Simulated scan of single mutants.
Amino acid sequence: MKGLGELERTVMEVLWAREDAGLDAATARDVSRALAGDRDLAHTTVMTVLDRLAKKGMLERERDGRAWRYHPVASREGYVTELMLGALNETGDRGAALVHFVRSVSEDEAAVIRRALADITSPGKEPPA
């Protein structure tokens, strides 16, 4: 999965924040309003970015009268995971890249990794596909 441009990331952050808050899918107008304080964007620009994100498979959309409602296909964490896996695929030695990554994380982050590994490798647990 490719990275997003700055404006695409900003729009996705609005949609992920709405999802985190338990709100329904957003219209282009909802996104425009959410961005109004930070950016001076034409409504048509927001519509174009939403359409582009839907074509990239980042968003699903459904008709709501004359408008479209958009919601993310994946969570923010799922998207970042795909970016990380894509970066691993770019190296000739995934193991070496993983070791280098793990050595660069903070102690708190290392503890999170240890807990996740213990969780997926504990007896009785099926390994992930």
Rank of each mutant, 00 (worst) to 15 (best):
residue 1 M to N: 07
residue 2 K to S: 04
residue 2 K to Y: 02
residue 2 K to C: 02
residue 3 G to R: 12
residue 5 G to M: 04
residue 6 E to P: 01
residue 6 E to K: 01
residue 7 L to V: 03
residue 7 L to Q: 06
residue 8 E to P: 00
residue 9 R to G: 12
residue 13 E to N: 14
residue 14 V to L: 12
residue 15 L to A: 12
residue 15 L to S: 13
residue 17 A to Q: 13
residue 18 R to T: 06
residue 18 R to H: 05
residue 20 D to R: 10
residue 20 D to T: 08
residue 20 D to Q: 13
residue 23 L to C: 05
residue 23 L to Q: 10
residue 23 L to T: 03
residue 27 T to K: 06
residue 28 A to N: 01
residue 28 A to W: 02
residue 29 R to A: 14
residue 30 D to F: 03
residue 31 V to N: 09
residue 31 V to G: 08
residue 32 S to K: 04
residue 33 R to D: 10
residue 33 R to M: 09
residue 33 R to N: 13
residue 34 A to N: 15
residue 35 L to M: 04
residue 37 G to F: 00
residue 38 D to M: 14
residue 39 R to Y: 13
residue 40 D to V: 12
residue 40 D to S: 15
residue 44 T to E: 15
residue 45 T to W: 03
residue 46 V to Q: 15
residue 47 M to W: 05
residue 48 T to W: 05
residue 50 L to P: 04
residue 51 D to R: 15
residue 52 R to E: 12
residue 53 L to A: 11
residue 54 A to G: 12
residue 55 K to C: 11
residue 57 G to F: 01
residue 59 L to H: 04
residue 59 L to G: 03
residue 59 L to N: 07
residue 61 R to G: 05
residue 62 E to L: 00
residue 66 R to K: 08
residue 66 R to Y: 01
residue 67 A to E: 14
residue 67 A to W: 13
residue 69 R to V: 08
residue 69 R to N: 10
residue 69 R to C: 07
residue 70 Y to G: 07
residue 72 P to K: 01
residue 73 V to Q: 06
residue 73 V to N: 10
residue 75 S to R: 11
residue 76 R to D: 11
residue 77 E to W: 13
residue 77 E to C: 11
residue 77 E to V: 14
residue 78 G to Q: 15
residue 78 G to R: 12
residue 79 Y to F: 11
residue 80 V to Q: 11
residue 81 T to W: 00
residue 81 T to L: 06
residue 82 E to I: 03
residue 82 E to T: 10
residue 82 E to D: 15
residue 83 L to N: 02
residue 84 M to V: 12
residue 85 L to T: 00
residue 85 L to R: 01
residue 85 L to Y: 01
residue 86 G to Y: 01
residue 86 G to S: 03
residue 87 A to H: 07
residue 87 A to E: 11
residue 88 L to W: 02
residue 88 L to M: 03
residue 89 N to A: 09
residue 89 N to S: 08
residue 90 E to G: 00
residue 91 T to P: 04
residue 93 D to K: 00
residue 94 R to G: 00
residue 94 R to N: 00
residue 95 G to Y: 13
residue 96 A to Y: 02
residue 97 A to L: 10
residue 97 A to Y: 06
residue 97 A to V: 06
residue 99 V to R: 15
residue 100 H to P: 03
residue 100 H to E: 14
residue 100 H to C: 11
residue 101 F to L: 02
residue 102 V to L: 09
residue 103 R to W: 09
residue 103 R to N: 12
residue 104 S to R: 13
residue 104 S to G: 14
residue 106 S to T: 11
residue 107 E to M: 05
residue 107 E to C: 11
residue 108 D to T: 15
residue 110 A to C: 05
residue 111 A to T: 09
residue 111 A to E: 15
residue 111 A to W: 07
residue 111 A to M: 12
residue 112 V to R: 13
residue 112 V to N: 06
residue 112 V to P: 05
residue 113 I to T: 01
residue 114 R to L: 11
residue 117 L to N: 03
residue 119 D to M: 09
residue 121 T to P: 09
residue 121 T to L: 12
residue 122 S to C: 07
residue 126 E to C: 03
residue 127 P to Y: 01
residue 129 A to M: 09
residue 129 A to W: 02
